[in-house]
Amino acid sequence: MEAIQLNQYEDISPVIDKPIISYQKVSKSFGDLKVLREIDLDIAPGEIVAVIGSSGSGKTTLARMLMTLEQPTSGVIMVDGEPLWHKSVNGKLVPADEKHIRRVRSKIGMVFQQFNLFPHMTILRNVTEAPIHVLGISRAEAEERAVAMLNKVGLGNKLDVYPAQLSGGQQQRVAIARALVMRPKVMLCDEVTSALDPELVGEVLEVLKEIAAEGETTMLLITHEMAFAGDVADRIIFIDKGRIVEQGPPNVILSNPRNPRTREFLSRFRQQWASKS
């Protein structure tokens, strides 16, 4: 039984000394549907991890559990050495209260496929609201930070407009600024370009590449953009039917995958990747 599983799932995880994120036997079911099965995954501080896999394989669920938008059915997620959903009481893990979750969650930020900007707030306020009310910094300082961040994503000239007045690509860049201004240790990006017109994808990926290159933020990127994943990621993880089937450096995973499922999945994208790189 053991041997068969090893053959089937050649998941060779790197050994990471002090992971910033650690999924430990994390499973998630929706009713009878098992979406993730005993996921073990360590991510090093500053690492850029791209998650690929076909639709319905559980990629979004993996990220949503880390953002506390979905509760694991079993297993433990550690963030920076602390359990996210649990609290340690006398050496035993018990479900955590809202206060604990909020504290640990402050280390995580997320950018969504559908942007989810606040439509009733100007761009500037979208980016300052959380620093002011969550971090408790002054309005002046929050605005200074926000303007710097919006400049970085190329939207320093749109401070006073509302999200509806921006293109999808611009909105997504605001969403990235809104998440980054909180200075999270880990950024989750779930198919952040999937809702965009093809000609707007590039500008958003450029911004993400820049952030990745700075090396300060750990990133978990769920993406269908293989060329981008190959470019920016330190490690690519292939998920299939709720399991990590294969993982490794981009050049290995994208050009020389061992698992037949990875090969099959990638054959659909290889041409695209080859043409772009």
């Binding site: 506390t68 969650r105 995580i108 930020g109 969504f112 900007l117 609201e129 959380a130 809104r178 909180m182």
Partner: peptide, 10 residues
């Protein structure tokens, strides 16, 4: 709601 959670709003 989800964006609010992601930004850690109370």
């Amino acid at each position: 709601w989800e964006a609010s959670t992601a930004l850690n709003f109370s």
